[in-house]
């Protein structure tokens, strides 16, 4: 049971992380990359929580809250200072 849950969640989260990293790589805009980085952070938090649930410990809980804070500060900062550098609109 434990191994099955670990393998299934590992495969699903790996696919999800690959998709988020692909969106970070191709963009096309800075805000898309910020959003995909936020999703990648949420996937990392889900992996930490799966580890905690399967192995019955709470060591990662502080790290989970810290990840939330880092994602918040990062996306707010980038969104605050983003500027329109493109000549034409709507090519996102």
């Amino acid at each position: 049971m434990k191994d099955i849950v670990l393998i299934v969640t590992a495969v699903i989260l790996s696919l999800a992380a690959a998709g988020a990293i692909y969106r970070i790589a191709v963009g096309p805009s800075l805000l898309d990359r910020v959003l995909a980085a936020d999703v990648l952070l949420a996937i990392l938090g889900a992996a930490l929580a799966v580890d905690m649930a399967v192995n019955r410990h709470l060591n990662n809980l502080v790290l989970l809250v810290a990840l939330t804070l880092i994602g918040f500060v990062g996306s707010v900062t980038v969104a605050r200072f983003v500027a329109d550098r493109r000549g034409q609109v709507n090519d996102s």
């Binding site: 699903i12 989260l13 999800a16 690959a18 889900a46």
Partner: peptide, 11 residues
């Protein structure tokens, strides 16, 4: 598993 599928849906 459903929580992990949420991540996959977002991706």
């Amino acid at each position: 598993i459903v929580g992990a599928l949420m991540s996959l849906g977002a991706a």
